[in-house]
């Protein structure tokens, strides 16, 4: 879809994708807080326009690496919602058979190299996939999603150096949500992140990560460059994490680390509401949007019900898959 206007069907499909991530994670958030989920869950609520905006420019043959906050990337790249839900429930029917959980969801058949529990861990993996894509010569590209926290790992600079030298089809998508876990970016990050790319001669752009169209257009430019052999691009998407770092944080944090007024201000800039408002302006009716929301609600309900009913893995499965 890179260089044309989006059709109504495409726009509705994008809306569906963003709403799927949102509703899916609202459900996970509630179930995490009620203790149903066995492990920690980091939700992407508020950042959906980034994953969907980038992935709408990709095909199944392109590669992505993701972060500990990776459900949105998984779904946006075409991962199956039910298989994701079941994984986070720890069931044997999960996409990783219950071995990875929330922080390690992957689906290699769809180019999803996976979420990653190591902050910045996906950057080098995507660079390697970009090398493979370049060697394949089929115009594929690789995308590393990472946060502003990961941008402080040295590997980001190492990756830009190699990607620029070798003109790798790599797109570094830095989702700057303003927080490294519980630390404000102002306390841990110097300068402007997208400026770091300039030092390596990597074209960079700063985009409003809550504006789907802006992300999507920038992604289109970056993907075109990558596919044409013109090398890497760095995109800094300014966005905000409407939930905490981890859903269970209220149970252990001694005090709040951000102002409620700040959260409220960003809630006003909710990327899905903004996209819905754009669609409501002569593209789709309120009923059409509501029908999508209801359809997704049913899908999430079904996925959660199935996950809850599905069996736990056989303990014997713990002894499989270490080696090929």
């Amino acid at each position: 879809m890179s260089n044309k206007n989006l059709s109504k069907d495409e726009l509705l499909s994008i809306y569906r994708s963003m709403v799927t991530i949102r509703q899916f994670e609202e459900r996970l958030s509630a179930e995490s807080k009620s203790g149903i989920l066995p492990g920690p869950v980091h939700v992407y609520i508020g950042q959906e326009a980034v994953a969907v905006g980038i992935c709408a420019q990709l095909t199944d043959d392109d590669w992505i690496t993701s972060t500990h906050r990776g459900h949105g990337h998984f779904l946006a790249k075409g991962g199956t919602p039910a298989a994701l839900m079941k994984e986070i429930y720890g069931r044997e029917t999960g996409i990783c058979g219950g071995k990875g959980g929330s922080m390690h969801v992957a689906d290699f058949s769809r180019g999803i190299i996976g979420a990653n529990g190591i902050v910045g861990g996906g950057i080098a993996l995507a660079t390697g996939a970009a090398l493979a894509a370049q060697l394949d010569g089929k115009g594929r590209c690789a995308i590393a999603f990472f946060g502003d926290g990961a941008a402080n790992q040295g590997v980001m600079c190492e990756a830009m150096n190699v990607a620029a030298l070798w003109k790798l089809p790599l797109i570094l998508v830095c989702e700057n949500n303003g927080y490294s876990e519980f630390s404000k970016a102002a306390d841990v990050t110097a300068g402007v992140l997208s400026d770091r790319a300039k030092a390596y001669g990597v074209p960079s752009e700063q985009v409003d990560g809550n504006d789907f169209m802006e992300v999507w257009r920038a992604a289109g430019r970056a993907v075109a460059r990558a596919r044409n052999g013109e090398g890497p691009t760095f995109l800094e998407a300014r966005t905000y994490r409407l939930h905490g770092h981890v859903e269970s944080e209220h149970t252990f944090l001694p005090k709040a680390y951000r102002e409620e007024s700040e959260v409220e201000a960003w809630r006003e800039r909710d990327p899905i509401k903004a996209f819905a408002a754009m669609l409501s302006d002569g593209i789709a009716s309120a009923q059409e949007l509501e029908a999508i929301e209801q359809e997704i609600a049913a899908l999430v309900e079904e996925a959660a019900a199935e996950a809850a009913a599905d069996p736990w893995p056989d303990p014997e499965a713990a002894f499989k898959h270490m080696f090929a």
């Binding site: 190299i113 861990g121 993996l125 090398l131 060697l135």
Partner: peptide, 28 residues
């Protein structure tokens, strides 16, 4: 030069790239 590459001294990146390139179908 496609199959045999000199790299920068960037071990953190190189080990990760090996994983990424292997995941994407190469023997590294």
């Amino acid at each position: 030069p496609d199959r045999v590459r000199d790299t920068p001294i960037s071990e953190v990146l190189l080990t990760g790239m090996a994983v990424g390139a292997a995941a994407a179908g190469y023997r590294v």
